[in-house]
């Protein structure tokens, strides 16, 4: 078979590309060890923001970022699940502020400050609903929108305790090598979710 130089060049590139793809497939198909299961105390440390029934056997933990669009997409599902199963499920929200989101730490600190006044989840709902409006001014005004004590709110959102709590959550997220936001743990096991309907399905099963 008489191939032209151009055909040989293209063939060479195709073969090279296939070789790279096969190599990548081999590397990526190596079985990854199953994600470790965590205890309730590891996932829900003292001081974590929680809701639902603390005595329930089923517990759901979300690692989330208030500036993450996927987290916003999941937030309404989480809210309806925690409302539906408020007697059968214990839910905890933990921070995984991603570096690429400039306001994720500011939002987390603001939510923590609201949490000190018993409004963590109200703040979370408000922040997710206004994710595209984030600015320093937005968080400064959040105290009046959420009917918080503004002086206390300002003090708490800038406190070292708040910063440490967010840092601790982020440290856990990094050491547990969480794949992204949101990441959910149900009864200690990390969920691999296709979409939010799978979260509903998993929780429905767990609370039966």
């Amino acid at each position: 078979m008489n191939l032209s130089g151009e055909t040989k060049l293209f063939l060479g590139v195709i073969i090279g590309t296939i070789a790279i793809i096969v190599l990548a497939a081999v590397i990526m198909s190596k079985p990854t060890p199953p994600a470790p299961a965590y205890t309730r105390n590891q996932l829900i440390p003292i001081g974590a923001n929680t809701k639902g029934n603390a005595s329930a056997s089923a517990f759901l933990v979300e690692f989330s970022d208030f500036q993450c669009p996927s987290c916003k997409a999941f937030s309404s599902v989480v809210e309806s699940l925690t409302e539906k199963y408020k007697d059968k499920l214990f839910f905890a929200y933990r921070h995984f502020p991603l570096d690429q989101h400039p306001f994720s730490r500011t939002a987390a600190a603001a939510a923590e400050a609201a949490g000190k006044q018993g409004k963590f989840f109200e703040a979370g709902t408000y922040f997710f609903a206004n994710q595209t409006n984030f600015s320093d001014e937005f968080f400064a005004k959040a105290a009046s929108v959420l009917a918080l004590d503004a002086t206390l709110y300002e003090k708490d959102r800038n406190s070292n305790d708040t910063k440490k709590k967010i840092d601790d959550d982020r440290f856990f997220s990094d050491t547990a090598r969480l794949p992204g936001t949101p990441t959910f743990f149900l009864n200690g096991k990390q969920l691999i979710l296709y979409d939010s309907s799978e979260l509903v399905k998993a929780v429905d099963e767990a609370v039966k």
Partner: peptide, 15 residues
């Protein structure tokens, strides 16, 4: 997870 410049890839993948 998809390695991405923003968090849009995960949002798209899960939709």
């Amino acid at each position: 997870p998809i390695v991405c410049l923003n968090s849009g890839c995960e949002l798209v993948r899960k939709n």
